[in-house]
Amino acid sequence: MRYGYARVSTIDQNTDAQVQALKAAGCDEVRAEQKTGTKMEGRDELTTLLQFMREGDMLVVTRIDRLARSVADLQKIVGMLKSKGVALQCTEQPVDTSTAAGKAFLDMLGVFAEFETNLRKERQLEGIALAKAKGVYKGRKPKVDREEVKKLKAEGLGATAIARQLGITRQHVNRCLRAVS
């Protein structure tokens, strides 16, 4: 069986083009999800595929960065596939995990995907620092009014009761009380 895996990171993207390419590549089943590629946690469709595939199956992706954005995760996934006897193929990149050259190319692509992610993070941090220097960036607006927490505490409610009433955690209540004090 040929299984396809499509992934996008943000809600303003969609997997339609990837799904179409994977079906054109002869995939019997295609799984798609909208999750970050920088970590494996929370990627339920990928986890399902990795658990379900058997010896002789093939996992097909359009590009390596759709599978993983870190070299460590990519190597972990490839190791899992190899241990099960599952091959990996990319529709847009010449990846063949059964040859030394294909494995080296796969590793290089993984390095570039991780490098791109790191560059994006650096640019984001630079932008935040610049916005803070201009006084534009204030951070996320608080979800809970700290004065409300303080008022409920003054009325005699405990941290657990305040948390239940405001729909927050007890730890958050305690942080609010420390910040107001």
Results as ranks from 00 to 15, higher is better:
residue 86 V to A: 07
residue 155 E to K: 15
residue 36 T to P: 09
residue 145 D to K: 07
residue 43 R to I: 04
residue 171 Q to M: 08
residue 87 A to I: 04
residue 75 Q to Y: 09
residue 55 E to P: 15
residue 96 D to M: 01
residue 162 I to W: 00
residue 178 R to V: 14
residue 156 G to A: 00
residue 167 G to Q: 01
residue 127 G to S: 08
residue 139 G to Y: 06
residue 160 T to A: 12
residue 162 I to S: 01
residue 83 S to Q: 15
residue 140 R to Q: 08
residue 77 I to S: 13
residue 108 M to K: 11
residue 92 E to S: 15
residue 49 L to F: 05
residue 134 K to V: 04
residue 49 L to Y: 04
residue 53 M to K: 04
residue 53 M to G: 08
residue 153 K to S: 13
residue 149 V to I: 13
residue 157 L to D: 02
residue 68 A to T: 08
residue 123 R to C: 06
residue 125 L to Q: 13
residue 109 L to N: 01
residue 72 A to D: 10
residue 118 N to I: 04
residue 80 M to T: 15
residue 136 V to Q: 10
residue 82 K to D: 14
residue 64 I to V: 15
residue 74 L to C: 10
residue 51 Q to H: 11
residue 99 T to V: 00
residue 57 D to N: 14
residue 150 K to A: 13
residue 103 K to W: 07
residue 128 I to D: 03
residue 136 V to W: 02
residue 47 T to D: 10
residue 161 A to T: 13
residue 130 L to C: 07
residue 126 E to A: 15
residue 87 A to N: 14
residue 133 A to F: 05
residue 172 H to C: 10
residue 90 C to Q: 01
residue 149 V to S: 07
residue 72 A to W: 02
residue 100 A to L: 09
residue 76 K to R: 14
residue 134 K to L: 11
residue 126 E to H: 09
residue 158 G to C: 00
residue 68 A to L: 04
residue 94 P to R: 02
residue 166 L to Q: 02
residue 123 R to P: 07
residue 156 G to I: 00
residue 167 G to F: 00
residue 178 R to I: 12
residue 93 Q to W: 00
residue 60 V to N: 08
residue 49 L to N: 06
residue 47 T to N: 11
residue 42 G to A: 05
residue 90 C to F: 01
residue 137 Y to D: 02
residue 175 R to F: 11
residue 137 Y to F: 15
residue 76 K to S: 14
